Simulated scan of single mutants.
Amino acid sequence: MPHMSSPTPSASSGLTPRAALMLVLPPLLWAGNAVVGRAVTDLIPPVTFNLVRWALAALILLPMAWQTLRPSSPLWTHWKRYSILGLLGIGCYNMFQYMALKTSTPVNVTLVASSMPLWMMLIGRLFYDAPITRYKLGGAVLSLAGVLFVLSRGTWNNLLQLQLVIGDLYMVAATIAWSLYSWMLLHTREPATVRARWQAFVLAQVVFGLAWSGVFTGVEWALQPHLHIDWSPKLLGALAYVAIGPAVLAYAFWSRGVQMVGPTVAGFFVNLTPLFAAILSALFLGDMPAWYHAVAFTLIVAGILVSSRQR
């Protein structure tokens, strides 16, 4: 899933081929994140994987936005806010996603994450008094139907017997955390010196996110002392990918694409992630998508299209 940039972008042009390329690349990279996370589940514990990933991303961002960490930076004045953002967007979301991939597939994980409109609507209504229109309600019902279809594996008996894979539930928790994170970004102004550049904005969150991830990693190793890390070329390549691609490049492409076409049009490109995940899983993991994945993906996309309509 993408981080949300604080500045409100304005669309300056239509959906040109260049803009479309900018917006197609992030979902491809995010889908790759799910596939890679699944591929290294036996090489590194999931919570530890999240910590190492963001530590590497911080090293990449530091030369571009080191001023954010100066003692005089407004980041420290707003440390409580960035601490919560780091907890939800970096600590909890990514941790739960990698935990989900231990028992669930990349296709399931990305499809469950596509239920975001439902959680956005519920959290907005409960905590921010956001109105619920009939289009939003109808879209939420369709999205929920798609998620239930994935969780049931297309079998009604599975749903009745609540035969859920624990990874699917972890991904629901991740999606709720991301929804809270997104609403916080939407309703709080950033210091101008931090929001001026996306590198500074991400680094401000990563600093606190690493602290939370370090605590979670300590708990992981304390509860499971038999854990180990296999520092193989496969793991090193995976870490390089998730740090450079989904954590840095995807954000850069996404920010530029949103500036070119606006957030409304750009938002629909996120729904390419499950499709890319299905293709990449078939190519690299042998996890061929089932018929219920296609039905669920159709329902979720239909829900997002309906919920985006205005009166």
Rank of each mutant, 00 (worst) to 15 (best):
H3I: 05
P7L: 04
A11Y: 05
A11Q: 13
G14I: 10
P17L: 13
R18D: 11
W30N: 06
A31F: 01
A39Y: 11
D42A: 13
D42N: 12
I44G: 03
I44F: 10
P45T: 06
V47H: 03
N50G: 14
R53V: 08
W54K: 03
L56S: 03
P63M: 01
M64D: 01
W66Y: 13
T68P: 08
S73H: 05
W79V: 07
K80R: 15
L85E: 12
G86K: 08
G89P: 09
C92G: 00
Y98G: 01
S104N: 05
T105P: 10
V107Y: 07
N108E: 15
L111K: 06
V112C: 02
S114F: 02
S115Q: 00
S115C: 12
P117V: 06
M120I: 15
L122D: 10
A130S: 10
P131I: 08
R134Q: 11
Y135N: 09
S152A: 11
R153W: 03
T155M: 03
Q163A: 08
Q163H: 12
G167R: 08
L169R: 05
M171V: 02
S182M: 09
S182N: 13
H187D: 10
T188D: 13
T188Q: 11
T193N: 07
R195C: 14
A196Q: 14
A196S: 15
Q199P: 06
A200G: 05
V202D: 10
L203Q: 07
L203H: 02
L203D: 04
A204R: 01
S213T: 08
F216G: 08
T217S: 14
T217E: 01
E220H: 01
H228F: 10
I229R: 13
D230P: 08
L236P: 13
Y241H: 02
V242L: 07
G245L: 05
W254M: 05
S255F: 11
R256S: 08
G257E: 12
G257A: 10
M260D: 10
G262I: 14
G267M: 15
N271D: 05
N271F: 15
A277F: 06
A278Y: 07
L283A: 12
L285D: 00
H293W: 06
F297R: 05
V301Q: 09
G303S: 06
I304Q: 15
V306S: 01
